[in-house]
């Protein structure tokens, strides 16, 4: 983590969430991420890793607690405001890529702009999309539909889509899960580089322990041994 990571980009306080009619409860007393900080979340399935990402993204509403992303509170907002905040400050990289099948790689990268009624698809944005594609090595595949792309290419396109709006928080859920070892390292390096360049924060759920030493911190949901760094806490009951 660089020296500029001292200010909290993401702040979670006293967070509590449980699914209705389910014997599951996630509690996070405190969690802070600084700009350019790269944090990994590990732990067995069903321990709440993806739930935490969904809470941070405003896709789930906590019963208790507060989430602040880049000075904007996510909790307590109405649905429309949460969606707006998600559009403008968050980037998502999914395990199964979730590219839109009928859009070309280029249009998939630009998709977040088309979802935002206030955003304009300017020439600058298009140049940025092309630059991102160049940076991740898919510039020659931009006219292809997702079905014509390899797994690695799909994930790179998904990363471009997540980064196109320069998000303050990048959430990656098993982003390298479907990739071969070579591509895993490559994709992770790309994510790290973009996070560094954009001054964002990265919170990545992963099962790949071989990559953990590349992160600034690791939060383990399995044994509540939260972090190699002491600046955050997560507790799972």
């Amino acid at each position: 983590m660089s020296e500029t990571a001292s200010l909290a980009m993401i702040s979670v306080q006293d967070l509590a969430f449980s699914y209705p009619k389910a014997n599951f409860r996630l509690q996070v007393p405190g969690l802070k991420l600084a700009a350019r900080e790269k944090v990994a979340i590990v732990g067995p399935s069903g321990t709440g890793k993806t739930t935490l990402l969904n809470l941070l993204a405003g896709l789930l509403i906590p019963q208790h607690g507060k989430i602040v992303i880049d000075d904007s509170p996510m909790t307590g907002l109405r649905d429309a405001a949460r969606r707006r905040l998600r559009r403008r400050k968050l980037g998502f990289v999914f395990q199964d890529f979730q590219l839109i099948p009928y859009l070309t790689a280029y249009d998939n990268i630009l998709h977040p702009y088309r979802l935002d009624p206030d955003a304009r698809l300017t020439a600058e944005v298009r140049q940025r999309a092309a630059a991102l594609a160049e940076a991740v090595g898919v510039s020659d595949r931009l006219k292809q539909l997702p079905r014509a792309l390899s797994q690695g290419e799909k994930q790179r396109v998904a990363i471009c889509r997540a980064l196109i709006r320069s998000p303050r928080l990048l959430l990656a859920d098993e982003a390298t899960g479907n990739l071969d070892p070579e591509n895993k390292t490559l994709i992770l390096e790309l994510l790290f580089r973009r996070v560094e360049d954009d001054g964002a924060a990265l919170l990545a759920v992963t099962h790949d322990h071989g990559l953990l030493d590349r992160f600034d911190r690791v939060i383990d949901f399995a044994d509540f041994r939260h972090s190699l760094n002491t600046t955050s806490e997560a507790q799972h009951a």
Partner: peptide, 10 residues
């Protein structure tokens, strides 16, 4: 679902 996750309006 993807559109929703990416912040598409209602």
């Amino acid at each position: 679902r993807t559109n929703y996750q990416l912040g598409a309006d209602r």
